[in-house]
Every structure is written in C-alpha cells, then in structure tokens.
Design a protein around this nucleic acid. Structure first.
Lengths: 206, 206
DNA sequence: ATAAACAGTGAATCATCATTCACTTTTTGT
DNA sequence: ACAAAAAGTGAATGATGATTCACTGTTTAT
C-alpha cells in the first residue's frame, strides 16, 4: 500500500469542491443557471473542466447542489423570522416580509430559484424548496389556529397559496427583462403582497 | 410575370400551417414542449421538416405561437365565466373555478402553460399570458370595489396574488411526477383554493 | 407549351457545449 | 528513491436535434 487518502488531501479536495460551488454560485448570481458555462466556472475556480467532474457527476448535479445550498440559506432566514416573538400571525407576516425583501435584494438569484427554466434535476430541487416553504408556513398556520389568531382552515392549502402569491408577485419585478430600479427598503410592493396574504389567511382587513 | 399567389394557394398554405400547429398542439398535449420533436411534428402533419421552416422561423417561434393559441383558448373561457350574471365577487369566483377545473381536466397542457421550463421566447409568452389573467381579474376587482362587494385595495397586486395562488396550488397536482388520479368533478382542492383567494380578496369568511 | 416564381423535400450539416479519457503530476508509504 | 494510487488536466469527442439548402415538383400567366 503506497497511497492512502490523508487528512491534508481530504481538506484540499474539500476546498476545491467548495471553490467550484462558490464560483458556480457567483455565475448564477450574475446570469442564472442557463448561462453558467462549465468552462467559465472552471476558469473562475482555477481548475480544469475535468476536475469538476471529479467532484460532481454532471453539470445538472452541480447545479442541483448549488440550488439546494442557496435554498437552504433562504429557508434559514425565513425560519429565523418565524421564530421572532409575537403570535403566529405576526410571525408569519415577518416571514413573508423577510422572504420578499431578500428576493428583491438579490434579484437574479431569486429569479433563478423561483422562476428560471431549469433542467429536471434542478426543477426537482425547486419543488422541494417550495414545499419546504409551504411546510414552514403550514406549521405556523396550525399554531395560529390553536392560538386562535388565525381562523380554522385548510392549513396546507393556504400555505401553498401563500407561496404562490408571493412568488408570482415577485417574478414580475425580478424578471430579467424588467429593468430593476433601486429597491427602496420599505417597498410598497411588499406591503401590498403581505396585505393580501394576511387577509387571505385571517379574513381580517386592517 | 408568371406566378402570383392565388387564393387557392393561399388557402393550401394556410391549411398546412394549421396542420402543423394542430400537430404541435397534439404533441405538447401528450408530453409538453420539451419532448415535442420537429421530426415527430413533421411526421404527424405529413410534411417534410423543411416545410415547417417555410411557415415558422424556428422551433421556438412555432412553440411560441402554439403557446399563444392555447392560451387564448383558456383566456376566452375564463372571460366567459367572468361575464356570467352575478356581482363581481361571484363572477370572479366562477372564473377561478373555471380556470382550475379546466387545468385539472387537461393536466399536461396546463402544466406546460403554467410551469414547464421553456425557451426564452415561449417564456415571454407565458409572462404575457399570466399578465392577461391578471388584467382580467384586476378589471373585475375594480368593478367589485365600485359595486361595493369587494373592499378597497390594490387591485393589480391582488390580481397578481390570485394568479400566483392558483398556479402554485395546481402545479403540484399537475406535475408530471404526480400520478394523476381521476379528477372528480367537485374537487375539494378547487374549493380550498377558491376559499383562500376569495377571502384574500374580500376579507370575508363564509 | 413555356418559363418564371414559388412551395416542398429530407439527407446532410452544423452548432453548442457537456463530457470523456489518455496522459501528466502529485501524494504517500516503504 | 521507488512505485502504487490518486488527483488533475484540457484537447478531443460526442450526442442531440434543430436547421439548412440544393434540388425537385407545382402553380400561374402568357
């Protein structure tokens, strides 16, 4: 036996893998998945194209992983917002706001995650991602129903509607064709989305 | 001058063009845009592949046209539902029901129109299509506000949310992975979607 | 009948990039 | 120093179908 993977090597490989992921992330942030070329990613990461295939089965797999990671970051943020103090309705509102504002702040990535046409494996990740949001919302709606601040309803269905309403409202402004003006912090768009959603949920105007 | 396009020829060309469109429609109905091959379409339409390019600039253009036509059909149906008797809120509800039920009845095409990843030109059509729905809904919401059956609100924003909520709710059940059981006429899914949407709109539980 | 103008054809071409793999370089234990 | 085992390389390959275009067939007006 002459070669055996050592800690040093494991670390170096992990670093290369991470660099590839980071550079892919960067490319996607610039122009979405479709325009992210393997050669470009390899160039940025300072590895050969072949090396990318030592770390990922295929372009699609690499993209699926990057999608998943980007998604996890977003979900974490929304989860944090859901854990702020307040009743379920208030926390849900904070979460919707967090979601929307983050999307408007990183519009290309948000568009890629929400609406860019992608290959099947990545699309699968997207379905999972949307489901994850719906799950979070659903749980909180159930809490709200127990607490009494949200009326009895089909929590799963309502959470799906929430995800759809927000996504649709953002896709227009996020779309690459739509020239993006500066996003002011307290966007009235976000308020209007939230008003509709909370009303759909609670049946209460404010 | 020896040849000049005559009525007979114009008609024959129009027929071929129509046949190409019909066969593309058929292919999309079976498996969506991605799997619709030019050779297959040409075969069905009984023309050579080259002939397709006498009628359409490119595959993308052909698809965009088919998308537009399929869309127009749907929009017509929803418009009809919006023109039934009743107040604005009731008519809107009828429209949402029409939209959902038609989608569940023709799931592959509905999925292609709503969510299948498509090329940019077709995606553009999709944005137009969604905007067309939003426009219809918006107009009716405005009527409702005048009539007094819908409270004051940002009609444009609400209509966008409606489109998103419905689309998202349907994408799951329509998705090709989701095994489609028989769609019973009075689907509880449709009722739940409509409940959320109408509540978001009117702030009224029923 | 003729020829100009166009429509129809489909095998061959082409474009695009992801992916491969034969080779080089590096690492490791003896 | 040596050789086994990996890791790294990037030019060449390959797969996929859309698209082209040189040619054939049709239509029309004279």
């Amino acid at each position: 036996m002459a070669y055996r993977e050592t800690e040093k090597m494991r670390k170096r490989k992990a670093e290369a893998r991470q660099r590839i992921i980071d550079c892919t992330y960067e490319c996607v942030t610039e122009g979405g998945f479709r325009s992210a070329r393997i050669t470009r990613i390899a160039g940025l990461a300072e590895v050969a194209t072949g090396t990318i295939y030592r770390h990922f089965e295929s372009r699609e797999d690499l993209f699926a992983e990057v999608f998943r990671l980007a998604t996890e970051k977003e979900i974490t943020k929304v989860t944090e917002a859901l854990n702020t103090p307040g009743n379920a309705a208030e926390r849900l509102e904070a979460a919707l706001r967090q979601f929307s504002e983050r999307a408007l702040r990183g519009p290309v990535m948000a568009w890629s995650l929400l609406a860019e046409p992608v290959d099947p494996k990545v699309e699968e990740e997207r379905l999972a991602y949307r489901k994850a949001y719906a799950d979070l919302f659903e749980k909180t709606i159930r809490h709200g129903i127990e607490e009494g601040c949200i009326p009895e309803q089909n929590a799963r269905q309502s959470s799906t509607c929430l995800v759809g309403a927000i996504a649709e409202s953002l896709v227009g402004p996020l779309s690459p064709t739509h020239t993006n003006q500066t996003t002011n912090k307290n966007d009235p768009l976000v308020d209007a989305i939230i008003r509709f959603c909370m009303q759909g949920l609670t049946g209460t105007r404010r």
